[in-house]
Computed example of a mutant assay.
Amino acid sequence: MIQFLQILFWISIFIVFYTFIGYGILLYILVKFKEKRHPAQPLALPENLPDVTLFIAAYNEEKIVKAKMDNCMQLDYPKDKLNVVWITDGSTDMTNSMLSVYPDITVFFSPERKGKTAALNRGMQYIETPYTVFTDANTMLNADAILEIVRCFTDTKVGCVAGEKRIEVKDKDNAASGGEGFYWRYESKLKAWDSRLYSAVGAAGELFAIRTELFVPMAEDTLLDDFILSLRIAMQGYKIAYCDKAYAIESGSANIEEEQKRKVRIAAGGLQSIRRLRPLLNPFRYGLLSFQYISHRVLRWSITPILLFLLLPVNLILVLATHFTPLYSVIFVLQVIFYLLAWTGASLARKQIKVKILFIPYYFTFMNLNVLKGFFYLKKHKGKGTWEKANRADS
């Protein structure tokens, strides 16, 4: 029994370390090795810029419509080649009437709310431009975003372009937005390295683009439409390019309860995606893409959080069973300290006391707990594509 626990303990440590740190180190080394042999070549903009559709799926976004439209008008792309399309299915507030004052945009509306994926499926039937850029109503794009995305598509091997998601972090931010901001900075670095090695592993719905002809309708209960859509394009033999020069900025979640809604739904969507992208688990068929997908996504959304939380009790048993062997004792103490810091961060956040250094252990623990909760969310919401929106912090 003790021998089994020792094996489980060391395998768990290896997988947890590899998932959150080791893969990043390995990825960095592989990228440096590749680019030393084959330096990346800069891409030039096409002489004749193509028509592009900026596609915004929105539900009850009256508070943000004006700011989003102001942002759309500030994009540095020929106005006669940029089509702005909103699809507002199910909206019951003033979203549609506010959009009606903009004559140069197209609005598709259906009173029935079926969820974002169903709205995407319906709206994409009407898109005729060669490229479609997806963005959320509550995210603001940098002026050069569309130009930089079009630049990436000059590589004919690129079927999808993932923009960078940036969290607006201010001094007043809480643990949710502060922790989320740190997480996305690290995640953005991994995405960039993934892309430089071969392909980014998925795209975030805040900003990504596809060759319109590659769009394939998805099941309406799909929770992570951006992830499924982008990876199915990669499975067709195209690459997902990561473009940090095209970015979307949004506020962090209003509080940790609102952030939990997002993380649980994303975790549930991750589990759903693993099942629906089963062929991608086969490295003999998809090679390097499978390696990246398993290392960067599958482990995080499946066994790693389970092993992470098993480490503490297994470690305690081994400490007692081996009569306080120094190695097991030191690792146990380090785990206890880490969780005490996470608990302290949680306690201070509830009292509105901001200690940013504690956001990281708090958010890391919180994020992995929500992966476990994602299983129950998926079971409860099976067959449903709608969800309750998480409120964002005031900008």
Rank of each mutant, 00 (worst) to 15 (best):
L369M: 07
P361T: 03
G269P: 08
K384N: 09
V65A: 07
P326R: 15
E164N: 10
F324W: 15
E206Q: 13
P130K: 03
T53G: 08
I210N: 11
F9S: 06
P217G: 12
Y77W: 00
L288K: 15
N138P: 00
L358R: 14
L334I: 14
G345I: 12
R300C: 02
G159P: 00
L334E: 07
G345C: 00
K373G: 02
E213H: 09
G287C: 06
R278A: 10
Y18K: 02
I29N: 01
V201D: 05
Y126D: 03
Y328N: 01
E257N: 07
D76R: 10
M1A: 15
K189I: 13
L334D: 01
M73E: 02
V298N: 01
I13G: 06
P39S: 10
N391F: 04
E148S: 08
C152P: 10
V355R: 12
L340A: 13
I64M: 10
R262K: 14
L311P: 04
I256R: 03
P78D: 08
V150F: 01
S199N: 00
R151C: 12
F338M: 02
L271C: 13
Q335Y: 14
F55E: 03
L271W: 03
I317F: 06
E62A: 01
L372N: 05
E112R: 14
T322M: 13
Q3E: 12
N71V: 10
G385H: 02
L308V: 05
C72F: 05
L311I: 10
A175W: 03
R300G: 02
I11E: 00
Q272Y: 05
Y126K: 14
T156F: 05
E112P: 02
C72H: 06
K68Y: 06
Y18M: 05
L26A: 06
N255V: 08
